[in-house]
């Protein structure tokens, strides 16, 4: 249950402002794709176009194509709600629903769109999802406690459990570890390595070591200056990107000379 995404000449606009220009990218199924680049270069904006979350901002729109296993995500009549059920997302800051218990948080996506789920199925799904997010052993005795009672790293894994409970094809992660301590970060990175077996994962990160550790392929975004659109400068296998990148800017960024 994972699909590949082919992005073709994608431009992202906020009103008149061109934020990201001309992205061509292949995101392979069952792999981890990392997007790196300096702040404001449009990598998060681009990530959000893959599940149409950028449309939350008024007047944001996209030209070009993003095709997931033959289906254009921006085709006529495609409902963004359906896209988001297929392409899940984990955010920079852990955001479990504070008014829900841990179990209800996991089931939040499953209960949408008038879907019913029997009590025993729900129990199974909660265990399966939390196990999949490496959180089950830590929370199995307090599933009815509020999600906000967990630590930051646990909350983030709860959010991952919530995202995979709806069994998406693709999982987007927008700097998922930037608000976490090193130990929690390690836990998430281990989890990403496991999730790769079942899901297509795209991760935005500012941490180059993280990109090198977890990803199979890496894309480098850059921006010519403030007010200019962001571009995908280079994309290659992660090992190649971090040893012998073909573009000078990539090498400068990775070696810490700017950004």
């Amino acid at each position: 249950m994972s699909k590949r995404i082919d992005v073709n000449d994608l431009n992202v606009y906020y009103g008149d402002f061109l934020a990201v220009e001309g992205v061509n990218m292949v995101i392979e199924a069952r792999s981890v794709t990392a997007l790196i680049g300096p702040s404001g270069c449009g990598k998060s904006t681009f990530l959000r176009t893959l599940n149409r979350m950028h449309e939350v901002i008024p007047k944001a729109y996209v030209t070009g194509k993003a095709v997931m296993d033959g289906q254009d995500l921006y085709g006529p009549g495609v409902d963004p709600v359906e896209v988001r059920r297929q392409v899940g997302m984990v955010f920079q800051r852990p955001n479990p629903f504070p008014t829900m218990s841990i179990a209800d948080n996991v089931l939040a996506g499953v209960r949408l769109n008038n879907r019913r789920i029997s009590r025993s199925d729900a129990t199974d799904l909660v265990e399966r999802s939390l196990t999949g997010a490496n959180l089950w052993n830590e929370v199995k005795d307090r599933l009815d406690r509020p999600g906000s009672s967990l630590s930051g790293g646990q909350q983030q894994r709860l959010c991952i459990a919530r995202a995979i409970a709806v069994e998406p094809q693709v999982l987007l992660m927008d700097e998922p570890c930037s608000a976490l301590d090193p130990i929690s970060t390690l836990a998430i990175e281990d989890l990403i390595a496991e999730l790769k077996n079942n899901y297509t994962i795209v991760i935005v990160t500012h941490n180059m070591q993280q990109a090198a550790r977890v990803s199979d392929r890496t894309g480098f975004f850059n921006i010519a200056g403030t007010g200019k659109p962001g571009h995908l400068i280079e994309m290659d296998d992660t090992t190649t990107m971090f040893s012998t990148p073909s573009v000078k800017a990539t090498e400068d960024y990775i070696s810490g000379r700017f950004g």
Binding site: N51, M53, V56, V81, E82, R84, R85, G88, M89, F91, N95, P96, F97, A108, G109, L112, N113, C159, R162, A163, V166
Partner: peptide, 9 residues
């Protein structure tokens, strides 16, 4: 956004 990203209307 958490809710919308799960596919909520």
């Amino acid at each position: 956004e958490a809710s919308l990203a799960l596919g909520a209307t």
